[in-house]
Design a binder for these strands. Structure first.
Lengths: 222, 222
DNA sequence: GCACCAAGGATTGTATCCTATATAAGAGTA
DNA sequence: TACTCTTATATAGGATACAATCCTTGGTGC
């Protein structure tokens, strides 16, 4: 009944795959997405490609200008600042609600996930930690028990993904620091301390943003 | 979105007009938007209509299911609850930032706008107040000096517009109450009292949501 | 050499056509 | 009558054709 439909259109599949490739960094910010290219790549006509690109534009992953190729959104440092500030507030809010609303099962799952990522840190496995980190944040969105807040936070986080991804793959210091910050958040949530959960999550995102933005500023001049 | 729109496509125009009609209530939630109909109404082919509808889907104003007509999003009461809770937090945040960041000019403009709407309340001109109310909230979004927060709040507010619109047109009591709540927010912002601005704005949105939701529950069974 | 302009190709925007799917109407049967 | 199955028709999905726009490139004049 509520299980998602097996029936999907080509445009949907294209849209999903492109989103995945943008988020995971296969396609880079600023890159052009030409309709004819994509049509050949997917072995279909331009129509479903166009549909997919229009749908994607709403998610903020691509940028459409009339009579110009669609491009993967490339964010300026100022925009990164704003988005991280907003995301910080949103996720801090999620954490607060998690402390207040998470079920026993959810708290247990959060704890288990957090322990799994501890192992990833110890093993210095960056890829694994990056994935677990995504799951961690998703779980906090969901734990807010507010679908609107969940989807808004999730979408904003996805838009930042292409720029966040690289920072875990520099050194291993950020892994450890990130985990420690998560630890503070988890402890606050498990203790049902809403105020502290809010504060700690806000702090975590400030640190994330500092890392991301300093990395961006190092690797490009703009 | 952007200022310059000398060059626009048919799809853009259609998209904007449909959004406008949905927000203003010309088209109602749940209504079907058939491509052929729209094509005839706008005097164009289905192609740009399709583009427009896909673009709109990303803004959350319409709902697309494969092989079914696009429909104007119709929200369940649960969804209204979640969205209003989220919007309440977002706008409370905006108000907090306004108290901290608004320029002198912006504070002056806010005050003037607020006085204008006082007159609308006194005259019991519902349409005017509804418009000024929109401007008021837009101004607070802008005053946050965070474009990301501004656009997220604005979009969420637009999605709720079709459901919020009717409440000002019942009695005049809500006009007065709404203005009083605005008054508390404005005073806090002008006094640069961030904490109070946050609290009062949150309170205002709780009251708004109560009005909207009780109205919805009266006028339909779902 | 450099700025400017024109011509052509490349790419997106729009129209039209065909196909696949869904919804509604109707026939037949228990 | 109620139900199922069939069939017809309307509508969306996708392919193709054509038009408009942009962008490159090569030439021209200074």
């Amino acid at each position: 009944m509520t299980v998602d439909n097996a029936v999907t259109t080509i445009a949907d599949k294209v849209s999903r795959q492109l989103a995945e490739e943008i988020i995971s960094g296969v396609i880079s910010p600023g890159q052009k997405l030409e309709e004819q290219n994509l049509a050949e790549k997917f072995g279909v006509s331009r129509s479903p490609i166009r549909d997919a690109l229009r749908q994607l534009s709403g998610t903020g992953l691509v940028d459409i200008k009339p009579n110009r190729s669609v491009t993967v959104v490339d964010l300026k440092v100022d925009q990164l600042h704003d988005m991280y500030e907003a995301l910080g507030e949103l996720e801090a809010l999620c954490a607060k609600f998690c402390a207040q609303r998470m079920t026993t099962v959810e708290r247990k799952q959060l704890e288990e996930l957090h322990q799994k990522s501890k192992i990833a840190v110890r093993k210095k496995s960056k890829k694994t930690y990056a994935d677990l980190n995504d799951q961690f944040h998703d779980m906090l969105h969901q734990g807010s028990h507010n679908e609107s807040l969940q989807s808004i936070s999730g979408e904003l986080r996805r838009r930042l993904a292409p720029f966040r991804r690289p920072i875990f793959f520099r050194g291993t210091k950020r892994l450890k620091d990130s985990w420690d910050e998560h630890d503070n958040v988890v402890n606050a949530i498990l203790a049902a301390d809403a105020k502290r959960a809010h504060t700690e999550m806000g702090r975590h995102l400030v640190n994330s943003s500092l890392n991301v933005i300093s990395y961006i500023e190092e690797t490009r001049d703009s």
